[in-house]
């Protein structure tokens, strides 16, 4: 339930005074946190070995550098004091997200309804079952083709029966 869009969430996060919300990161930024921890340990290491011969200093600094580099690349999940979600909080968040979804849906009702309407055909769960079904039988096909041919010839026979004059003198009798 962490925020995937973490790059853009940084500003929001800071404005919330550290209070956990739906944009709170589950894992705190590991690099910035770990550098601090490891730097302390590497300093300890240096001070402990400061009595050694000076020729070892180069070796030591190299080791320190390696340690530091490793430390920056490791995410110590256990060491990070992350905000653990409790069962109750999950339920609360589910409710909150549902409310937000409904708000968005209510706002864009027209647009969403249109996009849903365009899906005229629905998904078929087992297409092979339908595709392997029987073909149209011979009688039905014959019925269809013969009916259509008869209908086509009947439709081609349609003619306008000319019974009356196309132009009718209208209301002339009253004027005369």
């Amino acid at each position: 339930m962490g925020c995937c869009w973490s790059l853009l969430c940084k500003d929001d996060n800071s404005s919330q005074n550290g209070e956990p919300n739906e944009r709170t990161h589950l894992l705190v930024d590991p690099i910035s946190n770990n550098i601090h921890i490891q730097r302390v340990s590497s300093e300890n290491l240096l001070s402990r070995n400061s009595n050694d011969a000076p020729k070892k200093t180069d070796e030591q600094s190299a080791l320190t550098r390696i340690l530091q580099e490793t430390a920056t690349n490791v995410i110590d999940v256990a060491a990070i004091d992350s905000h653990n979600l409790q069962q109750q909080e999950y339920i609360e968040r589910v409710k909150m997200y549902n409310i937000k979804i409904n708000q968005v849906l209510a706002g864009n009702k027209g647009a969403l309804a249109n996009s849903l309407k365009s899906c005229l055909l629905e998904d078929v769960p087992q297409p092979e079952k339908i595709l392997s079904g029987d073909l149209l039988n011979r009688e039905d096909r014959h019925l269809m083709t013969s009916s259509l041919l008869a209908a086509v010839s009947a439709i081609n026979d349609i003619r306008v029966d000319h019974k009356e004059d196309l132009v009718v003198p209208f209301g002339l009798g009253l004027n005369s």
Partner: peptide, 16 residues
């Protein structure tokens, strides 16, 4: 005029 078509359609619908 469209009597022929009507007849054709009636014939089609004769099939139960």
């Amino acid at each position: 005029m469209e009597n022929n078509l009507d007849r054709v359609m009636e014939e089609i619908c004769l099939d139960p």
